[in-house]
Nucleic acid binder design. Sequence first.
DNA 1: AATGAATGAGCATTCATTCAT
DNA 2: CATGAATGAATGCTCATTCAT
Lengths: 195, 195, 195, 195
Amino acid sequence: MVKKYGEKYHAIIDAAIKVIAENGYHHAQVTKIAREAQVADGTIYLYFKNKEDLLISLFRLKMTRFVEKVKQKVDLVHSVEEKLHQLIYMHFKQLAMDPHLAIVTQIELRQSNRNFRKEIGSTLKLYHLLIEDLIRFGIEEGKFHDDVDIRLMRQMIFGTLDETATSWVMKDMKYDLLALVEPVFSLLMNGLKRK
Amino acid sequence: MVKKYGEKYHAIIDAAIKVIAENGYHHAQVTKIAREAQVADGTIYLYFKNKEDLLISLFRLKMTRFVEKVKQKVDLVHSVEEKLHQLIYMHFKQLAMDPHLAIVTQIELRQSNRNFRKEIGSTLKLYHLLIEDLIRFGIEEGKFHDDVDIRLMRQMIFGTLDETATSWVMKDMKYDLLALVEPVFSLLMNGLKRK
Amino acid sequence: MVKKYGEKYHAIIDAAIKVIAENGYHHAQVTKIAREAQVADGTIYLYFKNKEDLLISLFRLKMTRFVEKVKQKVDLVHSVEEKLHQLIYMHFKQLAMDPHLAIVTQIELRQSNRNFRKEIGSTLKLYHLLIEDLIRFGIEEGKFHDDVDIRLMRQMIFGTLDETATSWVMKDMKYDLLALVEPVFSLLMNGLKRK
Amino acid sequence: MVKKYGEKYHAIIDAAIKVIAENGYHHAQVTKIAREAQVADGTIYLYFKNKEDLLISLFRLKMTRFVEKVKQKVDLVHSVEEKLHQLIYMHFKQLAMDPHLAIVTQIELRQSNRNFRKEIGSTLKLYHLLIEDLIRFGIEEGKFHDDVDIRLMRQMIFGTLDETATSWVMKDMKYDLLALVEPVFSLLMNGLKRK
DNA sequence: AATGAATGAGCATTCATTCAT
DNA sequence: CATGAATGAATGCTCATTCAT
């Protein structure tokens, strides 16, 4: 394998996202990705161990950036409410800004096999930690409940964001995902119950 | 095709669940399913149009029952709090009681192709409706917020239950899912914010 | 195997002709033939050893009748010219009168396998003999050349009739096959050469 | 698909002819053809869209050459009698020289399905045209009858040659096909009738 | 005699990966 | 570094035939 992270490395990853988004996971053959990246089939194997490695690298690269950008914005504000608000905003914002990526992460890559899904899980751990840190901060500040399992709170937050985003993609992104930032924030904070 | 819904029909579906749970979606060959169901390969095609039809039928049958059982219990109680509580309990209970089914619905069937996922979506609609009815009832009773989109509330409830269940399966079901009924209920009702 | 030549025996053969003519040789499944004949699949195996036996029986029965009818008419006339004329007429007449049979014998049954084609050959032998008798009669009468191989003359006669009939079927029987009796007779008698 | 008409392209076609001739149309599996051509199964699909495409290509290539060679020789001579004589000679000559091809074209490929047979028909059209041109030439020269349908004359010529060749193959090529050139020529020219 | 549910052998095709150039 | 022709393992489905009823 050669100088990773070179020009072609990114060309191949971007080609893969485009091909998967446009053709679906199961029709994203290596040949198609190579053609889109304007390299030969064999070249892909100079940069990636195999197809799975390409997909994992793709997911890692994009998700790391995704989480970094969320973290950046979350760090800029100081109250836990503002932090959660930023988290939701940035989560939705990034998906709304990159429809190809949204399709790939919310829909297509979920059709991958077991091993890959485990890998996805481990990559998402960064995001989970970010959310859990936020929750811990909220508890320390006395703003969040201190008698509920943090992991569970994280699952509610992530599960809600993920389900909301997936539904939006499945509905062909026909409505404005960002319009949901406010009500989702309110729901997560206050729950279903009217006080 | 022959008298559907006979003894073999169910034997094949149950065999499929077992084989998929144990081998993963992509290694669940028709031959393996047939052997597990103790029928010939060709017999499967007397009861199902093709492999996809088998998988869709499997999902429909099991999910319909799943939703029916949830609904049954939800209908038995009268306050919206009790109803939501029952919903969470039954959702987790049924997955906890049938680990094979849990693996298949939470993990394996999600790696299916686009068409199939659409079919999954349409089957889940029943469940979505059930949850939305519950929310509407809560709003009418004055117990739930009336200023948040019902679909969004549903996405929070379903997203939270689904993410919680998937995490549990991914962690090899090593902890007690039912122990989460109470805190999940509390979280969904009250949100993250400490009053 | 049971009382051959019973009512169902013929029902099955007629059903086979219809199904083959309408669906083509390769789509003529035993099940379809059974349904058309209004018997169970298994019943066919009470009357025929296997599918090939059914097809061979079909061809034998129909070709035997075909040849018999030709012979009947040929026997009624006395000069070799009249006999040949009758042969051509009856050959075309019978195909024109039974389009299903024409499709089956000229097109569909030719897609059968080696063994079957041999069987076809042996069944056609009757017809070949009839034609060769006619030729021999012509030679004895001094009307036909006596210096050409009889088998060759027969191949010219049969080849011409067969090619003419096949072309007619391939052209969807859009023109009148019987209109060709006269010119074909003339061609076979006089050859291409203008005297 | 890769550079067609290369070395392997012809190796595959020749392998197909051999395998079909030796095993029969229905036992000519792709794997067998690949092994005979000393390539991998998948390689066949680099040169042909699918198995049917291979068979059609085979027939087209061989028949086109067949017709070309006939035409070449027919063009070298000037009288219509000589032309017809050459046609018969070349038709028989080429089959006699390549027994595998003879089996494949006279017997095996006729068991193919409807679509394929249509393709065969369209490829044979070239040959039909060649024969019809010859007939037209004979008529213009005043040598052939001008009161018989040209298509019918062609059907007599082709039908006779084809039936003669098929019979020869069915008799396991036990006699000399070329010995029939003279009498077939004479028969076609003069017909059955002794003058 | 008749039924029809059950059987299971057989095969074209795809596509990730390699390696000689 | 890059190419792309060649590889070959892996599998869903059909349908003639059987046999318990």
